[in-house]
């Protein structure tokens, strides 16, 4: 074979099929959008029918959506939906629930401590680490800005 590594990589890229971008985007848009619509509907119910304040209703929606995501993961539905929806099921909070519950189910066999509890964050861990870090950084900037009248706390 007379190809260099780089030439082979280019050749392989040409031979490998591409993802069906338009179809994937459509699926992600529709399913992701639907999940958000469901979230909004639950919010409206909590606010109007149950009578929670906006803040309380928002928190309750998150809790409910996480439960739904976890439940659908447990009964082997979420993964099947995600196969088509991709980013549409990954980005909403239900995807976060899936990322926690799926390794918890998978690694239960290695025990409750070093299996389930330890492996639970194997996918979602980085989201927590960088999500919390980013929120702290933003909080500090916000706090400093408040001294210059940039937005009251």
């Amino acid at each position: 074979m007379k190809l260099t590594n780089q030439e082979y990589q280019e050749y392989l890229n040409k031979k490998s099929p591409d993802s069906t971008l338009l179809k994937d985007l459509l699926w992600a848009f529709v399913v992701g959008g639907l999940i958000c619509v469901i979230g909004q509907a639950i919010f409206d119910i909590y606010k109007n029918a149950v009578g929670l304040s906006d803040d309380m209703a928002r928190t309750a929606v998150s809790v409910t959506m996480v439960f739904i995501g976890a439940f659908l993961t447990g009964i082997n539905v979420y993964g099947k939906l995600a196969k088509h929806a991709g980013g549409g099921t990954l980005v909403p909070i239900t995807g976060f629930a899936n990322a926690i519950v799926s390794p918890a189910m998978e690694f239960k066999k290695e025990g409750l401590v070093l299996g389930l509890a330890s492996k639970m964050f194997v996918i979602a861990g980085p989201v927590l680490v960088y999500g919390i870090t980013a929120s702290v950084v933003v909080g500090v900037i916000y706090f400093i800005m408040s001294f210059f009248g940039g937005g009251g706390i």
Binding site: T20, T73, L81, A82, K83, V101, S102, P103, M105
Partner: peptide, 17 residues
């Protein structure tokens, strides 16, 4: 899957390759 990739129930998409 569990050794090389992700848990079975994890909602990931497999590449065409």
């Amino acid at each position: 899957e569990r050794q090389y990739r992700t848990p079975l129930e994890y909602g990931g998409q497999r590449t065409p390759n």
